[in-house]
Design a binder for these strands. Sequence first.
DNA 1: ACCTGAACACCGTTCAAGT
DNA 2: ACCTGAACACCGTTCAAGT
Lengths: 219, 219
Amino acid sequence: MTTRPERREDALSRERIVGAAVELLDRKGEGGLTFRALAAHLETGPGAIYWHVANKNELLTAATDAVLAPAMTAEVTGTPQEVVRAVALGVFDAIEAHPWVGAQLSADPTQPAVLRIFERVGQQVRALDVPPSAWFTAASAVLHFVLGGGAQNAALARTLRDTTNRTDYLEAVAAAWADLDPDEHPFTRAVAAELRDHDDRVQFLDGVDLILAGIAGLR
Amino acid sequence: MTTRPERREDALSRERIVGAAVELLDRKGEGGLTFRALAAHLETGPGAIYWHVANKNELLTAATDAVLAPAMTAEVTGTPQEVVRAVALGVFDAIEAHPWVGAQLSADPTQPAVLRIFERVGQQVRALDVPPSAWFTAASAVLHFVLGGGAQNAALARTLRDTTNRTDYLEAVAAAWADLDPDEHPFTRAVAAELRDHDDRVQFLDGVDLILAGIAGLR
DNA sequence: ACCTGAACACCGTTCAAGT
DNA sequence: ACCTGAACACCGTTCAAGT
């Protein structure tokens, strides 16, 4: 029997690198992830990272999956509708906690994190007695809504993080909307007041329900 | 009466800069828009651009609106459902013609191009006899789906542009899906065959119809 | 008022050289 | 096998100086 060499505590590894990347992204935003900053944080040179990770894109993809995987593998029980709501909310919350995930999920439809969401949603679509010919469309519709809504919310969250007062900012946007040309933007004007005190989370879930209602009609 | 100074044909202006930016983005992709490349194209120094445009972000926002505005101001007649479909398709086609628009629309919910889409969709929601309390949710749902689906499609289009053969690439992804672990990804596996010969455009419109069906249920 | 272009403070990525 | 860090080829943005 051979003894394995003692692994240094602080040895570099893909996991440690990805973990540090997530930390950096969370603390400093998308602009904060730099091979130099990452290397400094891990106490190496920038070149060392390239031994474990091909490039920045791969690093971002891995960081996104690391952040999303827990929510997408959690066991949820309930009706298919309830599970879809839970999955959607899991994505929403992950994006709210890590705003950089919002843009990243929209950047590549073939990345593992997107596949996880698609799969979870698709399984529920199948459980809803949707005819097989509509499976793809139904699952894609939910996916697109979740990623689109998540990205919009993340962008807003990023702006809000830089703003001292959240209510003040939403107030300002609502005021701008209310000030729009009635001939050009009648709807947005009419809806401006609702922006002031709307709950993103509730509205997001209402949107999910809307699509679920549409899917129910496919039976 | 004073004579205005003769305006030089090649004088710099916001419009010329934005036009050149669109051209550069279309020809070279998101990475191709550089203040240096833009300046070279306009036969000036990079600093000159900053007299007309605050920064790169503002330039991207303006370029996005320039590309989307025509489709969003076009007159469309028909039922509210038909108009929503036309608007959604207008966004889809704009993104397909200018893939960089996909990511840009998801980057900032307050940008003018997004407001245009929201307004057009909202007006139709109102025409559909949706109760006022659901206006915001219904319009947002369509918006999120359109932006989410558009971004996904743009990302795919970007990958496909770098690939020699479109069918080969989709074939490869479909094969990868079909090879997934049946225990982890049963749905994606089951649906892999459909990816091979699905029509993005048709599927996108089917998704719009799904949401419209959900909205109809709000009455 | 508008343009010029050098300069500043950064980037991602590579690669010879080390251990 | 894995790490180091200097070097390459870039960026966005600023700003004194020009017209």
